[in-house]
């Protein structure tokens, strides 16, 4: 019997501070509380405290896995962190987390840089490492502090994004059936500028000019150090790619649409999710929209949503669940899983 990788548990961490629709509406009076909720499906977003970083959230999320006795520190062989808001350019934030969690020094630890498709990639990496016999026990952490990149006046993104971290424990299980996979991936770097923080890397280092705010063509003030999202083009990309990706995954896995028990897509915002659901014709009771209180935490939304739906009984062990991530890159990916919590 072969070793198959499986998802054994998830724990999430959200920062204390909740940015509510009431507070946003005071800042942007043209958008009232009801309108923000109706369009985004979000009531509040968690925002990191000043000085709170990805490693702090990642440590808190992973510590919950240990507290819940999902796994013990001594058995961890590899720590993988997905983030686009690392503590430093170098070293890898995963190394800092290894030390802060007092994990054994004999483990592997590394970061990888992806956004909304990041959790799907993380599952593919972890599955590969486990099923080739390199490791048996892996912690995959997806964590972001995107709100640090946002211009305070940019209502188009401040209503949507929140900060948070999710830690997933994956381990080897002796069985014949696949617990994760197959996968579909896609990339279109020609859309890189549709969702970008233009300054701060080596292509455009921070200098006195990068902090200057200019009014962009959508009428919103931003500096090149701020996150820019062309919401309309990201939306078009999603409508164009995601339905095809779902079809491709069903074909590749030889799965019938009706045999998928539940669908968890990247929790971008309710409007985008509802549009996708209708276009793909997924029944409401099989489709997850549950980020009302955690908002869009980028690569952390899928595991956060999965944890909530499992705890609510909407997903049970061995149910076939489709996961799909899509966004910054442009990058997209989808897979099928069966959890075994």
């Amino acid at each position: 019997m072969n070793n198959k990788a499986c998802i054994k548990g998830i724990a999430s961490y959200l920062p204390d501070y909740q940015l509510t629709n009431e507070e946003l509406s005071e800042k942007y009076p043209e958008w009232n509380v009801e309108k923000i909720y109706k369009k985004t499906g979000i009531s509040s977003r968690s925002i990191v405290a000043p000085g709170e970083c990805v490693s702090d959230m990642a440590v808190a999320a992973a510590q919950k896995l240990f507290n819940k006795k999902v796994c013990v520190k001594e058995e961890i062989e590899c720590l993988i962190l997905c983030t686009q808001s690392p503590d430093y350019f170098l070293p890898s934030t995963a190394c800092i987390i290894q030390d802060r969690l007092e994990l054994p020094k004999g483990i592997a630890a590394f970061d990888y840089n992806l956004g909304c498709s990041g959790y799907i990639y993380g599952l593919a990496i972890a599955k590969s490492l486990i099923e080739t016999g390199i490791f048996n026990n892996i912690i995959l952490i997806t964590a972001e502090t995107y709100t640090k990149y946002l211009n305070p006046t940019d209502k188009s993104v401040r209503t949507i994004f929140g900060d948070g971290a999710a830690a997933t424990f994956l381990c080897a299980k002796k069985c014949e059936e696949e617990m994760i996979g197959p996968f579909i991936f896609g990339t279109d770097g020609s859309g890189a500028e549709k969702l970008i923080v233009p300054a701060g890397g080596h292509r455009r280092p921070i200098d006195s000019s990068t902090a200057i705010e200019l009014v962009c063509d959508d009428g919103i003030k931003r500096s090149p150090e701020n996150l820019y999202m062309d919401g309309a083009e990201i939306f078009n990309f999603t409508l164009d790619r995601v339905p095809q990706m779902i079809k491709d995954l069903l074909n590749k896995s030889e799965t019938k649409f009706d045999d998928v028990g539940y669908f968890i897509f990247h929790q971008a915002n309710r409007f985008m999710l509802e549009t996708l659901r209708k276009k793909i014709k997924i029944p409401k009771d099989k489709f997850c929209i549950n980020n009302e209180y955690f908002a869009n935490t980028v690569s952390a939304t899928i595991p956060m949503a999965l944890e909530i739906e499992f705890n609510d009984g909407k997903i049970k062990n061995n149910d076939l669940v489709m996961l799909a991530g899509f966004g910054v890159g442009l990058s997209w990916g989808a897979t099928l899983i069966k959890v075994l919590f």
Binding site: K39, D218, G231, K278, K279
Partner: peptide, 15 residues
């Protein structure tokens, strides 16, 4: 016709 309205219109045109 703000960012929310534009995205909603794209969805409507697609539909």
């Amino acid at each position: 016709f703000d960012s929310l309205a534009i995205v909603a219109t794209l969805a409507l045109i697609d539909d």
